[in-house]
Amino acid sequence: MSVEVSGIGFDDPVLLASGILGSTGASLNRALRSGAGGVVTKSIGPRERTGHPGPNVFVDDSEEYALNAVGLSNPSDAFTDEVEKVEGPTVVSVFGGTADEFADVAGTFAPYADAFELNVSCPHAEGYGVDIGADAELTRDVTAAVDEAVDAPVWVKMTPDVTDVTEIGVAAQEGGADAVVATNTLSAMAIDVESGRPILGNAHGGMSGSALKPVAVRCVYDLYDALDIPIVGVGGVSSAEDALEYMLAGARAVEVGTAVWDGVEVLGEIADGIETYKKDNDLSHDELVGRAHELTPKEDGDGGEG
């Protein structure tokens, strides 16, 4: 069942996504006990932050999506006390406003991280996240700075809010990324009709959940054609079928976020379902990953770069 992504082995290809139940060592261990093959921490930055005023998160009545604007709340360096308790493969998510800040934070957590995930894609914190990850040059610079600062593999988390996600993916790869993660939430807003106000305290937020999945699957599919480095899929995975969609599109592993609101046990259930599918279809993990590309009719002059 074990898979390898960028040289790191995971017991199964289902990881806890960043920003989900990931504020403490104990909560990350709980995800591991529930069947996650690895965990991604909440994004940690150069300074402690309490985040935006609430409402910070809500799940829509349709249950098809959640919106959040937590605002990169984090305890900064004090998180070292938490991450050192984690008893499984640990991807430390970091953010900063500049390449140097990214490199400094990654350096602080180097003793605890099996890999780093660079949050250049949070859509609701000015000066951070997507302000970097929508720009190819900044993405390349940040990735290169972290790659130079630490020995561990560097994963770069993509925003879906760009015209061409492959341009950003290629920039990350050129900067030395060992994997890309696709995607972060989609910039979004909801308005409370009765009061007339945006629901989120920050007005703008990020959309996650099932409604994000077709957008992020398309990103993974396109990145698979464009890149040589592995891809981790994330966005609206709540079942093994969802995870398999990402893998067929080209993801070696998936991250699960919003779906834990039904119970963290979903992590293990998804991992078991992937394994069953591979056995039933007599597919190795390598054969599964990207298989949809082989089965896609290609038009002349299109999609030949993979």
């Binding site: 920003g19 504020s23 959640a66 709340s73 834990v260």
Partner: peptide, 22 residues
């Protein structure tokens, strides 16, 4: 608490990691 529905992890307690909100 931030989310109230067991997603964000703000309220998880040691050493079980249990989210107090759910």
């Amino acid at each position: 608490m931030k989310c109230g529905v067991g997603i964000c992890g703000s309220c998880c307690i040691d050493d079980t990691g249990s989210p107090v909100c759910s």
